[in-house]
Lab assay of single mutants.
Amino acid sequence: YKPCFVCQDKSSGYHYGVSACEGCKGFFRRSIQKNMIYTCHRDKNCVINKVTRNRCQYCRLQKCFEVGMSKESVRND
C-alpha cells in the first residue's frame, strides 16, 4: 500500500476512498459519526504528519477531506 495520504505513516489499506493508516481511519470515522466540530488555534494550515497529526484535529480533518476521504462511505453502525 501507499503511505497514509493524510499523515504519511504506514498505511493499513484503503479506507474511505484513500490509502490511510489505522489512526487516521479511526479519527475520520469518529469525527464523522459524532459530527465533531473542531477549531484550529493557529492559522488553519498546520502541518499534518506522523509526529504532528494529534496536535490539531481541525487541520487533520481538513486534510482528510483534501486527500479525498469520503464521509458518505462512513457507516453509522
Rank of each mutant, 00 (worst) to 15 (best):
Y1W: 06
Y1N: 15
Y1H: 13
K2Y: 08
K2H: 13
K2P: 07
P3N: 15
P3F: 12
P3K: 12
P3L: 12
P3Y: 15
P3V: 10
C4L: 01
F5G: 08
F5R: 04
F5M: 07
F5K: 04
V6S: 00
V6R: 01
C7Q: 00
C7R: 01
C7I: 01
C7M: 02
C7T: 04
Q8D: 13
Q8C: 09
Q8Y: 14
D9W: 03
K10D: 14
K10P: 10
K10T: 13
K10L: 12
K10V: 11
S11I: 05
S11G: 07
S11M: 09
S11R: 05
S12P: 06
S12V: 11
S12A: 13
S12N: 12
S12F: 06
S12G: 06
G13C: 05
G13N: 07
G13R: 05
G13T: 09
G13S: 09
G13P: 07
Y14M: 10
Y14I: 12
Y14D: 15
Y14Q: 06
Y14S: 09
Y14P: 14
Y14F: 08
Y14A: 14
H15Y: 12
H15G: 06
H15V: 08
Y16Q: 10
Y16G: 12
Y16T: 09
Y16H: 12
Y16K: 05
G17N: 08
G17V: 04
G17W: 03
G17Q: 05
G17C: 06
G17E: 08
G17D: 06
V18I: 11
V18P: 04
V18R: 02
V18W: 05
V18S: 07
V18F: 08
S19W: 12
S19G: 06
S19T: 11
A20R: 01
A20Q: 04
A20E: 02
A20D: 00
C21D: 00
C21H: 01
C21M: 02
C21L: 02
C21V: 01
E22C: 04
E22L: 06
E22W: 04
G23A: 11
G23C: 14
G23H: 08
C24T: 02
C24P: 00
C24D: 04
C24Y: 05
C24E: 01
C24K: 00
C24V: 03
K25H: 06
K25C: 11
G26E: 14
G26H: 08
G26R: 04
G26T: 10
G26Q: 08
F27H: 03
F27V: 00
F27P: 01
F27D: 02
F27M: 04
F27I: 02
F27G: 02
F28H: 05
R29E: 15
R29A: 13
R30Q: 05
R30G: 02
R30M: 04
R30L: 00
R30C: 02
S31A: 08
S31C: 08
S31D: 01
S31L: 03
S31K: 01
I32D: 05
Q33F: 07
Q33T: 07
Q33G: 09
Q33M: 14
K34S: 14
K34R: 07
K34M: 14
K34P: 08
N35V: 07
N35Q: 13
N35L: 06
N35I: 02
N35C: 12
M36H: 10
M36G: 07
I37D: 12
I37A: 12
I37L: 09
I37C: 06
I37E: 12
I37M: 08
Y38H: 04
Y38F: 06
Y38Q: 02
Y38R: 03
Y38K: 08
Y38S: 04
Y38V: 04
T39L: 13
T39R: 10
T39H: 12
T39F: 14
C40Y: 03
C40R: 01
H41Q: 12
H41W: 11
R42P: 00
R42Q: 14
R42K: 13
D43P: 04
D43L: 09
D43I: 10
D43M: 09
K44T: 10
K44V: 04
K44G: 12
K44S: 13
K44R: 11
K44M: 12
N45A: 13
N45R: 13
N45G: 09
N45H: 10
N45K: 12
C46Q: 00
V47I: 08
V47W: 09
V47G: 08
V47S: 12
I48P: 04
I48N: 04
I48W: 02
N49L: 06
N49M: 05
K50T: 14
K50Y: 14
K50V: 15
V51D: 15
V51P: 06
V51Y: 11
V51K: 10
T52G: 10
R53G: 11
R53H: 11
R53A: 15
N54K: 15
N54D: 15
N54G: 11
N54F: 13
R55M: 15
R55V: 15
R55A: 15
R55H: 15
R55E: 15
C56W: 00
Q57N: 10
Q57R: 10
Q57S: 14
Y58I: 00
Y58V: 02
C59E: 00
C59A: 03
C59K: 00
C59Q: 00
R60N: 01
R60W: 14
R60I: 02
R60S: 03
L61D: 03
L61P: 02
L61N: 00
L61E: 03
Q62E: 11
Q62I: 11
Q62H: 14
K63N: 03
K63R: 10
K63I: 05
K63Y: 04
K63C: 03
C64D: 00
F65E: 10
F65H: 06
F65K: 08
F65N: 07
F65P: 03
F65W: 07
E66W: 07
E66K: 10
E66F: 10
E66S: 09
V67D: 01
V67F: 09
G68D: 02
M69P: 00
M69E: 02
M69Q: 02
M69I: 07
M69D: 03
M69A: 01
M69C: 05
S70W: 04
S70V: 12
S70T: 13
S70N: 13
K71D: 08
K71I: 09
K71R: 08
K71N: 10
E72I: 07
E72R: 07
E72Y: 10
S73Q: 10
S73I: 12
S73K: 14
S73C: 07
V74D: 13
V74F: 09
R75G: 13
R75L: 14
R75M: 15
N76W: 09
N76M: 09
N76V: 12
D77E: 14
D77W: 05
D77G: 11
D77Y: 12
D77V: 09
